[in-house]
Design a protein around this nucleic acid. Structure first.
Lengths: 157, 157
DNA sequence: GCTTATAGCCAAAAATTTTATTGTAATATG
DNA sequence: CATATTACAATAAAATTTTTGGCTATAAGC
């Protein structure tokens, strides 16, 4: 028996990931033709990539502007002395405006990316954040335009 | 005749988007059951959402760490006086490490997010960036851990 | 007001795709 | 050397997607 699962990825797996990244609805036969494998084998590989967590999920990439969330902003956060960091993280995970939250090096402790309807909504979000009592200080930077956008998807409910 | 296409989205469309965000492989019948529509109608709505650009693509969400890209960093950029901004944007679009690039308000002009294999790769990326001659100054912040991650997918080639 | 066009929906048929089953060959394990 | 295990593939079965045609309600044109 083996203690940990065999998790070696090869070039075919990488190619499959490339293809699915571009269009996750390609058929197994299509992908198979591109990587010289039968549909069954491609299916097995995709299942394995899912089981191993390499592919986290099949999803859609949405245009946030078309979903009435055209404004992206980055918020630097310095947590207040003795703030409940776990609670802050839970807040970030649950608030639907927060599309990213990173614990970072440097002068600030966290960096949030938020996606909102307009500046009024951004202001309300910042007010909520301040009222929540986690912050010592914060600084907000607005994205005027986006040259390279990450995929966007609505948060799970 | 109408000059622009009818592009009104209703609650059913939003619900479909929610469902597909969570799992883009749900069947039309499944989704139909959830929104009280026939599979055909769901299909027609998804087609329309694609045609209207609300759904940009069907894709997969990958774990960058499992793809050997465990390090995320943010790079603030101040462009050099008279730098070719279009060329800089083209660079950001084409470089495979750059997962986000935003033109931003505040003291810096651009914010990049990069996803790399390790600190050595980050250093090489920053060297490339400096050699490219766009920059006046830059500042790099590393993500120690990520609480809320955006979907990640490999860049088109 | 009447006719015509359009949008949204649905059922059913047709086409395609996915999934499950089974078998084989190659590789690794004890 | 015998035995698992892994990767692959062909086939059949099941499920899904796509297409077709038709229906109704609303909007637009005359």
């Amino acid at each position: 028996m083996k203690s940990i699962m065999n998790m070696v990825m090869d070039d075919i797996d990488r190619k499959i990931i490339d293809l699915l990244s571009g269009d996750a609805r390609r058929s197994l036969a299509d992908i198979g033709a591109a990587v010289s494998l039968s549909p069954s084998s491609v299916n097995e590989r995709i299942k394995k990539l899912l089981a191993d967590g390499v592919i986290k999920r099949f999803t859609i990439d949405i245009d946030p502007a078309k979903l009435a969330l055209p404004v992206a902003a980055f918020v630097w956060i310095a947590l207040r002395e003795g703030a409940d960091e776990a609670a802050f993280r839970a807040f970030a995970r649950e608030d639907r405006h927060v599309s990213e939250c990173h614990h970072v090096t440097g002068a600030w402790s966290y960096l949030l990316k938020v996606q909102v309807a307009d500046l009024a909504a951004l202001e309300r979000f910042l007010a909520t954040l301040k009222e929540s009592g986690f912050l010592a200080r914060s600084e907000t930077v607005i994205a005027l335009s986006t040259v390279v956008a990450p995929p966007f998807r609505v948060k799970d409910t």
